[in-house]
Design a protein around this nucleic acid. Structure first.
Lengths: 131, 131
DNA sequence: GTTTCATGTAACTTCGTTTATTACAAATAA
DNA sequence: TTATTTGTAATAAACGAAGTTACATGAAAC
């Protein structure tokens, strides 16, 4: 999307992502609410990036998408009655929090611009390999 | 379990854990394969801890249970064709690996003995509160 | 203005994974 | 020999994520 001047339709994006136009709209809608993309209807409509690629980080995308749970394991219950569960939570809560902080900090250090640059490099390599 | 001299049945454990005896057997079976618990059949049978509580860590439990995925987000595909996916993976793989290492190191520092001690402390507090 | 194209969104279906359940064989102690 | 308990296969249920259908709304082209 970053390399296109014109908007891309949900249909086109869905093909790129091997998914469904409605799923694209749902997801892009969240990014629009965060001011990262914009949508336009009708002829020549679709989705375009409006934010500064240097300023948008993966962390912002994570937030925009509703901060989905990072961990697949861990606390089932924040304030359990069960004392065993309380003990386990007490030891692990900090560990999970620290790991989450580490990860989110890394996310914050990746801009869309950096990804675009890396992508361009990979595309160039692939072109060379084809010749 | 640590505070009991005799084995506990899957039935009893299932009630404690709000789950099903068969689920308990499946899970405890993995812990048995790792040498952490033992099972006995028939009258007065059930499950008991056989490992040294000072030596068993949460990391060992994690391994014994088949190292379930820690992260709910991240790589769908380790070697994607898609260049965008490759770029994203390249930046995030290390971040996820570092977060995983951090977490597993923390797990390794928690022994069952420490949990038992913490549990005992909490149980004492609860008893005092009841009086 | 009417047609075409595209998003917005609600409602529903499908899919995959995890968990729960049923059923019964095998083993063990009373 | 009976009561009890694990071992395990097979099946069902529950859940969440993703996909699909349907149609209303808005915008550009003719």
């Amino acid at each position: 999307m970053a390399e296109r001047g014109e908007p891309m339709t949900s249909e086109t994006l869905a093909q790129c992502l091997c998914t469904n136009p409605v799923v694209v709209r749902r997801t892009m809608g969240l990014l629009r609410e965060a001011g990262i993309v914009a949508s336009s209807r009708g002829h020549a409509g679709g989705w375009a990036i409006v934010a500064d690629l240097e300023k948008v980080t993966l962390r912002q995308l994570h937030e925009a998408l509703g901060e989905p749970a990072i961990f697949a394991i861990g606390n089932r219950n924040e304030t359990p009655e069960c004392l065993v569960e309380q003990s386990v939570n007490a030891v692990l809560d900090k560990a999970f929090a620290d790991a989450e902080t580490l990860l989110l900090d890394r996310f914050a250090n990746v801009t869309l611009a950096a990804l675009v640059a890396d992508f361009a490099r990979r595309a160039a390599v692939r072109r060379l390999q084809k010749d």
